[in-house]
Every structure is written in C-alpha cells, then in structure tokens.
Design a protein around this nucleic acid. Sequence first.
DNA 1: TAGATTGTTAATCGATTAACAATC
DNA 2: TAGATTGTTAATCGATTAACAATC
Lengths: 222, 222
Amino acid sequence: MLKKENVSLSVIRRLPRYHRFLADLMRSGITRISSKELSRRMGLTASQIRQDLNCFGGFGQQGYGYNVEQLHREIGVILGIDKQYPAIVVGAGNIGRAIALNFDFSQMGFEMIGIFDINPSIIGMPIRDLTVADVAGIEAFCQKHHPRIAVLTVSRSAAAEMAEKLIHLGVSGFWNFSHYDFSVKYPGVIVENVHLSDSLMTLCYMVKDLSEKGTSIEVLKD
Amino acid sequence: MLKKENVSLSVIRRLPRYHRFLADLMRSGITRISSKELSRRMGLTASQIRQDLNCFGGFGQQGYGYNVEQLHREIGVILGIDKQYPAIVVGAGNIGRAIALNFDFSQMGFEMIGIFDINPSIIGMPIRDLTVADVAGIEAFCQKHHPRIAVLTVSRSAAAEMAEKLIHLGVSGFWNFSHYDFSVKYPGVIVENVHLSDSLMTLCYMVKDLSEKGTSIEVLKD
DNA sequence: TAGATTGTTAATCGATTAACAATC
DNA sequence: TAGATTGTTAATCGATTAACAATC
C-alpha cells in the first residue's frame, strides 16, 4: 500500500487531523468530499491534501472526489490505529489518571494493560478495568506482558531512570509527559513528547504578540 | 528589542524548549554555553540556534558564547512568561482538574482567576486556591474580570457554543483541549490546540512503521 | 595577540503551492 | 460527451544548514 518509502513527519502529523475531520463529515451524513471542499473546512490548500494522501496511494476518483467513509478507514489503517499494541501508564498522579480515564486507547491503536505508581496511597486505586500497581513490580510485569509503549507521567527526577529501565525491558515507544527530554539521549527509541508547558508558553507569546502589535481585537472579533 | 518583524511559528515553538534546557543548565551550575555545545545537548545544529536567537537580538558574545542565566531570562521575556494575563479554566472534568492542579500558570505568563463547570457534583469543589464555579455565571464573571485566555476542556459538543460565547466576552486566546477545531472558524482568535489523541495516533504510526520496517529494536537499544 | 565563537550572508534542502494532463 | 476533480510534475516559497568575516 505504501507508495513513498519515507513520508515526512509533517505529513504524518496531519493525518490524525484528516481522520478527525472525516469522522465529523461522517457524523454529518456527508458521504463524498472533494479536496477543495475539505481544504476549505480545514484551512489548508487542496493541493496539500492531495499531495499528503498520495504519499500513501490514490484514494480518490477523478471527477468525483473522495469517499468519506473509505478515506476515514484508510487513514486509520495508515496510522495503525486498528492495531492493539500493549501499553502501560507509568505514574498515576493527576495527569496519568486523567489520561487513563479520558482516553479510549483502543481507538488509537493501543490496549492499556497496566498502570503503575510509587505512591502507596495511589497503589490499589481502580482506574477503569485496571488497578494501580506498585511500580516495584514493573520489571516482572514487562518481562511477562511485553508492553510496546509506555505513557510516562512521572516526575522529571524519576523519568531518566524509569525511561532507561523500560527501554532495557523492551519498551520501544514513549508517550512522554514528563519534563525530561530523552529523545536525544536514546536515538532509535520512539518518543512522542507532550510538553504541555511548552504549548502554554507558545500561547503566551501569541497573546503578548497580539497585544504589542496593537491589532484591534474588536476588529478581529467580528 | 525585536529585530525581525514577523518571527515564524517554527522558531517560536522552539523557544520554550531552549528555555527548558537553559533551566537545566542553571540547575547543573553551568553559567556559560556555546551554540555548539547547546546544539549537541538538544539535538539541533549550532547554526539553527544562532539563527533562532538572532531573530530577537544578539544575546551572545564572540569567543565566549552565551550567558546561561541571562539567555534564560531573555527568552522568558520574549515569550512573555513574566506577564500575568488573567486566565480561566472552562470544564473541570478529569483533564481540566489535572491541568489546574499540575500547572503553575504563573510561571507561564498567566494567572488562574476562575474555574467553571456545568456539573452540580463538581461545582463547589476546591482546586488550589479556587473553587469550581457554576458555568452559568461565566458571563457575569468575564464582564467583571476580563480574562484574556480560556483553557477549554469541555466536551466536543459544548465547545462550539462556549468558544463563541467567550470570544464575544472578550477572550482572545484559547488553550483548547476539546476535540472541536475552531481555529478555522474564527481567524484572528488565537487558538493553541492540544489534540492529545492526534499525538497518540502519531505515536501509533511511528511504532507501526518501526515494526514494518523490521528494524531490529535490539540493535537500536544499545 | 591568538583562539574561539558569534552574527549574518549565501547555499541548500525540503515542504508547500500551482498548474495541468489524465480520467472518471 | 462535458464537467469535475484527481494524481502528479514543475515552480515557488520558506526553513535549515554551511560558510565566514567580525569581534570578543
């Protein structure tokens, strides 16, 4: 199915957004869409959409456009969210619990098979169909169940050691919420960093920038 | 202080990461750093670091490098995190609470002045020095306190109406955790989207891609 | 002064956009 | 068939990297 050998990360990062907008279209009962109309809704160019999709194959039909339901499904397959890679959550504090409670991992390619924490007052807490386990047992757990990815929500100080341990236990990917940046230290290990504070600082810059440029918010508002 | 009129978003998005690495250096007691050494630690090129910083001015010294503490402070000022823009959290579910509890907004340019929810069993709950208020009173609150940004963690279905309401109440920026993408609908309004599910799907792609290419994880591991 | 490293200009690379022939 | 819209090639644009003169 793959046409291009190496698809750029910029393209990959747009795929989930296409997937989301296509799901919206399905909900609205729209069954076909042109790259032009989709580009209008998403704030992109039609050219870019066609270029992006053609990295993976020709999913459209000349003169017709794309079948919404089919394209939605195909993008899901490209992303691999039809898989069920075993995953664990390490750190069951506020963020870890919120993630575990709010996300349906099974819809995003993963099966949540374990949650761990070091805090005795959190260990034993039920979260969905799992129970928070003592992180002391994580080594035995990994040797038995071989999780492919770990959601890392431990503190900055604990992250370095934990990442190293998990890599040696065979974990090949991390959804990293900790403030520790280990993508540089372990090249070859897949790390998807979620630095929420970076995102908030970027927002701060944009708010400040808008203020300083004195652009009338009133004008922009309507 | 600004040298360049319009700095690209790619550059802006790297600033918080520089800020974070510089804070690390300060903690390690390192007082000066060259672009070369910093690039090695961050996994970038020295050229890029110098280009990025020179969008805002010359912070270094030939033959010496950069003063860590000074550069850290300067980047903070560029980002505007020394400001205290009033902010509210709308939606105090798992994600909203986790965000409100974990983040020190004051260190990222914002002051948290209110938290709102629609659910009676959540209203009245204390979160840090605030209490979750009934979202019914959000209009009166905004007219009185004029929050600049809103952290939006309401459901997809509630997001559209809430965004519109807040925009008309003068909120000019959103930290958007909802699945509703309104950056296209309201151009001019600042929206920093945090689509955690997009991030997780991207990780899924990378894990799948690694599996399919059959690259030996063993080799990469050590 | 000599060595180091910046600030900045020029070259390269990659990503986005435009154009259009192919075709449903 | 005629109209529409894709898939794909070519042109443009922007971002990254390289090079080097300026200077601490």
